[in-house]
């Protein structure tokens, strides 16, 4: 099921699954796992291309996971199933064809923490899902210009692992948040605010974001490309922070 269709089930998710444990004074747990395909890039127009994970991450009581790698897709499901609370796993549509091996002795992954996917000193690229790969590509391109980018894979949008990205920003002093959600009221806004609240004086440059354009996602490929975060935009945004023109 894609996140777009979940809107028909929102009453069950929001009014019931997420609310009953607290509203019943702890009499009931709702150990529920929902997997949703999310994101754009397949030229299937507005009703099939939304990224609503940040929107779901607004809701207390939910755990919102965003695996981007093969082992996270495999083992975050296991962690989600063990959780006594409702968990939504957002799987980006562009990642389903990804193949990869994980260590045969691998048994589980942490579902609570972000991960540094690439260490760097000059700027932190904070992201998740399909945008992770765009950020990694951007980091490679930037390194050839002598800019050393760190890439943080959030992995979980709720609860947010603020520690990992705050430590990263404290090291690099610059940050670009990349999010396929719309900018206003987004998870990128939340991350930016957490940084502003807790690490403002660590920063050497303003916070920057690369988000989806604030429109429904159109069908035509060139318009869709223009809507979604792209590697090139990440590169120019990061470059401008590190080496202002």
């Amino acid at each position: 099921m894609t996140v777009n269709f979940s809107l028909l089930a929102l009453d069950q998710i929001l009014n019931n699954a997420v609310t009953i444990p607290h509203m019943s004074g702890g009499q009931f747990a709702i150990p529920l796992v929902i997997r949703m395909a999310t994101g754009g890039g397949r030229h299937v127009a507005a009703q099939h291309s939304r990224s609503l994970e940040g929107w779901y991450a607004h809701i207390p009581g939910l755990r919102v996971l965003t695996p981007a790698t093969v082992e996270d897709a495999r083992f975050m499901l296991k962690g989600a199933l063990a959780d006594p609370n409702p968990v939504i796993i957002f799987e980006h549509v562009m990642l389903y064809n990804m193949e990869g091996d994980f260590p045969s002795d691998m048994k589980e992954v942490d579902i609570a923490c972000a991960k540094v996917r690439r260490a760097g000193r000059d700027v932190s690229l904070i992201t998740y899902g399909d945008s992770l790969f765009k950020a990694l590509q951007a980091a490679d391109a930037l390194s050839s210009e002598g800019i050393d980018a760190e890439v943080i894979d959030l992995r979980t949008l709720r609860p947010l692992d603020t520690k990992t990205f705050l430590e990263s920003v404290a090291r690099t002093r610059r940050c670009v948040i990349i999010d396929e959600g719309w900018r206003s009221g987004s998870i990128s806004a939340e991350i930016g605010m957490r940084i502003a609240e807790e690490a403002l004086f660590e920063l050497d440059a303003p916070l920057r974001r690369v988000c989806a354009r604030e429109t429904p996602i159109p069908y035509a490929a060139h318009l869709e490309d223009a809507c979604l975060p792209q590697t090139e935009t990440i590169i120019t945004t990061a470059r401008e922070l590190v080496k202002p023109s």
Partner: peptide
């Protein structure tokens, strides 16, 4: 070109889509 195959609209013919949500 914004809708594609699943989202034909034509106001003049009172054709209100093309809806991709079952």
């Amino acid at each position: 070109g914004r809708g594609g195959s699943m989202h034909f609209f034509d106001r003049a013919r009172r054709f209100y889509g093309g809806n991709a949500i079952v």
